[in-house]
C-alpha cells in the first residue's frame, strides 16, 4: 500500500468524503469572496453606470477615478499616517512593558511575585471596551484627549500579552539564565540580550495582534480623537462617508483604501497571524 497523500485518506469512503468537503467549501468560499469582490468591482466603475445598472458586474469603462477623488477629496493619507504612528507606538510600548513583566514573572523570584501574578491574571476578566466611559474620564482628567497617547497608553495595559510572554519565558531553561548571571550579566542584561532574542515568536504574535487591534479600533478613537486631522482610518472614514451620499464608487473606493494596508500585512504575514490566533486564542 502506498502512503496516502493526506493522513486522513485511509479508504475509498474517506476519499469520496474529501471530494464532498472540497465542493462544499468551494461554494462557501465563493460566498465569502463575493462581498469583497463586489466592493472592488463597484469602486472601479463610473458612478453613472452604477446608477443605471447597480448589480451589474461588468463595465466597459473600468477606471481608478473614484480612488483619485477619495485621495484628493479626503484627508485619508493623514489618517493612514495617524493610524500607522499610533499602531507602531502601541506595538513598541506594549511589547516593551509586557515582555519585561512576563520575564520577571517567569524567571525572577521576587517577593510578592505570586500576588502580582494573580493581580494581572484577574485583569483577563475585564473585557475590552466595556469600561470606555470611566477610562474616558481618566484620560480627560490627564488632559490627554486628542493626543496619540490617549490611544497608545491604555492599549499597552494588556494582561493577555503578559501571559503570552510569561509562558514563552517559562519555557527557557533556568541553567541558561544562571550561566548568564555567573558571566556577570545584570538581570536587565539577561532579559534584553539573552532571553528576549529567543522569544521572537512571542514578540511577533503580540506585535501583530497589537497592531491589528490598534489599527481597527473604532469606539475608543471615536471618543478620544474628535479632530478630523487626528483621526485614524476607521473613524475618519465613518466621518466623511456620510457626505458621499449614493456615490457608490467613491464609497467602495474608501472601503477598499481603508482595508488595503492591513490586507497587505495579512498577505505577507498570513502564517504568523494564523498561528498566533491559534496559539493565543485557545490558551
Amino acid at each position: 500500500m502506498s502512503t496516502p497523500p493526506n493522513a486522513l485518506d485511509y479508504n475509498g469512503r474517506s476519499r469520496v468524503f474529501k471530494i464532498f468537503s472540497a465542493l462544499v467549501l468551494a461554494v462557501f468560499a465563493i460566498i465569502w469572496i463575493v462581498p469583497m469582490a463586489f466592493a472592488v468591482d463597484t469602486s472601479l466603475k463610473p458612478e453613472a453606470e452604477i446608477a443605471a445598472n447597480p448589480t451589474n458586474w461588468w463595465s466597459d469603462h473600468f477606471s481608478l477615478a473614484a480612488y483619485r477623488k477619495v485621495i484628493d477629496g479626503t484627508p485619508i493619507l493623514t489618517w493612514y499616517l495617524n493610524s500607522f504612528i499610533i499602531a507602531a507606538l502601541t506595538v513598541i510600548l506594549t511589547v516593551a512593558v509586557t515582555s519585561m513583566i512576563g520575564f520577571a514573572l517567569a524567571q525572577t523570584r521576587f517577593a510578592g511575585r505570586g500576588g502580582v501574578f494573580a493581580f494581572v491574571l484577574a485583569g483577563l476578566l475585564i473585557p475590552g471596551q466595556i469600561l470606555a466611559l470611566p477610562l474616558y474620564q481618566i484620560i480627560q482628567s490627564m488632559h490627554l484627549l486628542n493626543t496619540y497617547w490617549a490611544m497608545v497608553l491604555p492599549a499597552a495595559a494588556a494582561p493577555i500579552a503578559v501571559f503570552i510572554f510569561e509562558s514563552f519565558f517559562s519555557g527557557l531553561p533556568r541553567e541558561l539564565i544562571e550561566a548568564a548571571r555567573i558571566d556577570g550579566a545584570s538581570w536587565f542584561g539577561v532579559y534584553w540580550r539573552v532571553c528576549l532574542p529567543l522569544c521572537r515568536p512571542a514578540i511577533s504574535a503580540v506585535s501583530i495582534f497589537t497592531f491589528v487591534g490598534s489599527w481597527n479600533n473604532f469606539l475608543w478613537p471615536l471618543l478620544v480623537l474628535s479632530n478630523v486631522k487626528q483621526m485614524t482610518i476607521p473613524v475618519g472614514m465613518s466621518a466623511v462617508t456620510g457626505g458621499f451620499g449614493i456615490l457608490y464608487a467613491q464609497l467602495m473606493a474608501t472601503a477598499v483604501l481603508g482595508a488595503l494596508p492591513l490586507f497587505v500585512v495579512f498577505l505577507l504575514f498570513q502564517r504568523h497571524i494564523v498561528q498566533g490566533v491559534a496559539r493565543t486564542g485557545i490558551k
Binding site: 519585561m100 513583566i101 520577571a104 523570584r109 481618566i138 497608553l153 494582561p159 503578559v162 536587565f188
Partner: peptide, 17 residues
C-alpha cells in the same frame, strides 16, 4: 530586578485597566 521589570506594566495596568 523583578519589581523594576514589573513596574512599567503595573503602572499602566493600574491607571488604565
Amino acid at each position: 530586578a523583578g519589581w523594576l521589570l514589573s513596574l512599567p506594566f503595573l503602572v499602566l495596568y493600574l491607571l488604565f485597566l
